[in-house]
Computed example of a mutant assay.
Amino acid sequence: MSSATTGVLIGAVLALTAIILGFWAFVFVAIAMAIGWAAGRVASGDLDLRSLAESLRGRRSS
């Protein structure tokens, strides 16, 4: 699945959530999707939380 197709599907899910369930459900679904994305990246080894935290604290530049 290409990035464009994934983006369209995510947008459709968020739009339908906002239309059917309202704004706060939309916010909840968006946050849950972001957490799921981050958890998947950590599980696959594509996202290192320790280096991310260090760079956000300014201890590392790259």
Rank of each mutant, 00 (worst) to 15 (best):
R59S: 08
S62G: 09
L52Q: 07
G45N: 08
A34C: 05
S2N: 05
V29F: 02
G7P: 05
A15K: 13
I31W: 08
W37N: 04
F23H: 07
W37R: 12
G36A: 15
L52P: 00
V8Y: 05
A34T: 09
L21I: 09
V27L: 14
A30F: 05
L49Q: 03
L49C: 04
T5I: 10
G58R: 01
A53E: 07
A18T: 01
S3N: 06
G22W: 09
A30E: 01
T17P: 04
R59P: 00
V27C: 09
T6I: 11
L47Q: 07
R57A: 15
A18N: 09
S55I: 14
F23C: 00
R57G: 06
S2G: 06
S44Q: 12
L49Y: 02
R57M: 13
A43T: 02
I20L: 07
V27A: 13
G7D: 14
S3Q: 07
S51K: 15
F28T: 15
L56F: 11
L9N: 06
S61L: 13
D48M: 01
L9W: 05
R50E: 14
A32L: 14
L56K: 08
D48C: 02
L9T: 00
L49V: 13
S51G: 00
S62D: 12
A38I: 06
A18R: 12
L9I: 04
W24K: 07
T5H: 04
S55R: 15
S51M: 10
I20K: 08
T17E: 12
V8N: 06
I31N: 02
L47N: 04
R59K: 13
L56G: 01
I10M: 08
V42L: 05
V13L: 14
A39Y: 01
A12K: 08
L47A: 06
L47F: 15
R41K: 15
A34G: 01
R57K: 14
G40V: 02
G11A: 15
S62L: 13
V29W: 00
V27H: 06
A53M: 12
M1C: 10
S51A: 12
D48F: 00
T5K: 02
F26L: 05
I35W: 07
S2F: 00
D46A: 15
G22N: 11
V29D: 03
A12W: 11
L16N: 10
L52A: 13
L9A: 09
R60N: 03
S3A: 11
G45K: 10
